[in-house]
C-alpha cells in the first residue's frame, strides 16, 4: 500500500508543467486533488516515473462566466464549486450532482478537472459534463484545443488527452429557459462510487410536449454517455413518457458487470432511476412555465 518511488515535480507555471509532460510523456502522472490518483498510486495500479503536482498553478483555479457558458479552471475544488453562486445557479445540474461526489472529506480537496481527467465511468462530474454537452480544454506545448465532452471520454479511465497535454479547464453550458434538470444515483454507501448514476436535462414546450431531452448514464458502460432519445421529442412530458424512455434505453445498454452488480441489476437501475430523473426534469421544466 505504498507507491513506487517517483520523482516529485511541482511546477510554478503551466509552461513548466507542459515542459515536464514533454520530458516524461506517459511516464508522468498529473496530480491535483489526488483523491482518485492517490488511491491508485498507493495500490501501485499506477507506477509513474514522475508525479507532476499542479496545485501550485493558481491560474488554473479561476472561473469565467460568459453569456452562454461558464468556464471553470481545472483546479477548482469540488467543495469550492458548491460555494460559487454563479456556477451553482448557472449550471443547476452540476449543483444537483456535486453532493453525490465522494464525501465531505473528499470534496474538500478533489477538483472538477481532476475527476474529468481521471475518467472513472461512474463519476458524477464527467456524467454531468457529458449530459450538458460541455467541453474539455487541453493545453500542450503546441497550443490549446477544446474537445466536446461526448468525445473526450473513450473508455475506462481512458480519454482523448494526449500524454503531452494538460486538462486546463471545463466549459459548462449555462441553464436554458424552460428547461429542467435532475440527477440521482445508487451507491452502496452515500458517496461511494455509483453503481449507476443518471442525469437529465429536459426542455418542455408550451403545449407540454418534450422539445429536447438529454438523458445521461454513468456507471453503466465503460464511459459516461448520453442515450439516443430523439424519437421521444414531441411526446408529452409526463411520468408515463419518462418510463417509456427509461424502459426503451434499458434494452439498448450494454452494462458493466462487477462485484457490485450484474448487468440485469444495472439495467433495472436504468429503468427505475431513469424514470425518476426524467420525471423530475420534466416537472422542473413545467414548474418554470407555471412560474413564468
Amino acid at each position: 500500500m505504498k507507491p513506487v518511488a517517483f520523482e516529485y515535480c511541482r511546477p510554478d507555471t503551466v509552461e513548466e508543467a507542459l515542459d515536464l509532460l514533454k520530458e516524461f510523456g506517459s511516464d508522468a502522472s498529473i496530480i491535483s486533488g489526488g483523491l482518485s490518483l492517490g488511491a491508485m498510486l498507493n495500490m501501485r495500479l499506477v507506477r509513474p516515473k514522475a508525479l507532476i503536482d499542479i496545485n501550485g498553478l493558481g491560474e488554473l483555479a479561476d472561473i469565467k462566466a460568459g453569456d452562454a457558458t461558464i468556464r471553470t479552471g481545472t483546479l477548482i475544488r469540488q467543495a469550492g464549486a458548491m460555494e460559487m453562486p454563479v456556477l451553482m445557479s448557472g449550471v443547476p445540474l452540476l449543483a444537483k450532482a456535486l453532493p453525490y461526489v465522494g464525501h465531505y472529506q473528499i470534496r474538500s480537496r478533489g477538483t472538477l478537472g481532476g475527476s474529468v481527467a481521471h475518467a472513472d465511468p461512474s463519476a458524477e462530474i464527467p456524467l454531468t459534463l457529458v449530459t450538458l454537452s460541455g467541453a474539455v480544454t487541453l493545453r500542450s506545448p503546441g497550443g490549446s484545443r477544446e474537445v466536446p465532452a461526448r468525445e473526450f471520454f473513450q473508455g475506462l479511465l481512458t480519454t482523448d488527452r494526449r500524454a503531452d497535454e494538460l486538462v486546463t479547464g471545463l466549459t459548462w453550458p449555462i441553464r436554458r429557459d424552460l428547461t429542467g434538470y435532475a440527477f440521482e444515483e445508487l451507491a452502496q454507501r452515500h458517496g461511494d462510487f455509483a453503481i449507476t448514476a443518471v442525469a437529465a436535462e429536459a426542455t418542455v414546450a408550451g403545449d407540454g410536449s418534450i422539445a429536447d431531452v438529454s438523458f445521461g448514464l454513468g456507471g453503466v458502460e465503460d464511459r459516461p454517455f448520453v442515450a439516443t432519445t430523439a424519437g421521444f421529442v414531441g411526446k408529452p412530458a409526463t411520468a408515463a413518457t419518462a418510463s417509456d424512455i427509461a424502459n426503451t434505453i434499458a434494452e439498448t445498454v450494454d452494462p458493466m458487470v462487477d462485484l457490485q452488480a450484474n448487468a440485469d441489476y444495472r439495467r433495472q437501475l436504468v429503468r427505475v432511476l431513469g424514470a425518476r430523473v426524467l420525471t423530475a426534469a420534466f416537472n422542473d421544466a413545467t414548474g418554470q412555465q407555471e412560474a413564468a
Partner: peptide, 22 residues
Amino acid sequence: EHGVCGACTAIIDGAATRSCLR
C-alpha cells in the same frame, strides 16, 4: 490507505481531508 475508511483524516491547510492521499 486509499481514502475510503477516513481514519487518517486531518485538517490540512484548512480542509478536513485524507492524509493518506497526500
